[in-house]
């Protein structure tokens, strides 16, 4: 029982630490790259007429939706495991 619980907690912690670190780095790299590499960021990207700065900004929104959704899936699975563990108890 305690072992299962530890396992669930470890798995959750691992996911959250990776996800939040990624989100922070991805988020702060935007202003940092705007400051450090303004020329590159203002260059047209693979989409005609759209610069890298805009592509990166839109990617942020996609990143939020994607990470939120991944967390939702993960947490749902872990919640089910916890529920099962409590019932077995």
């Amino acid at each position: 029982m305690e072992e299962t619980y530890e396992k669930i907690l470890r798995e959750k912690r691992r996911f959250v630490i990776i996800a939040i670190t990624f989100a922070f780095i991805f988020y702060f790299l935007l202003p940092v790259s705007l400051i450090l590499f303004p020329d590159t960021m203002n260059r047209t990207s693979f989409i005609p007429g759209v610069t890298w700065a805009w592509v990166y900004a839109f990617l942020q929104i996609i990143m939020i939706w994607l990470l939120g959704w991944l967390y939702h899936l993960k947490a749902k699975k872990l919640d089910e495991q916890t529920e099962q563990m409590i019932q077995e108890e």
Binding site: A19, I20, A23, Y27, A57, I64, G68
Partner: peptide
Amino acid sequence: IGFLVSYLVVLF
């Protein structure tokens, strides 16, 4: 974008 990303901190 800053406003929006803050929801990940709340969620996680």
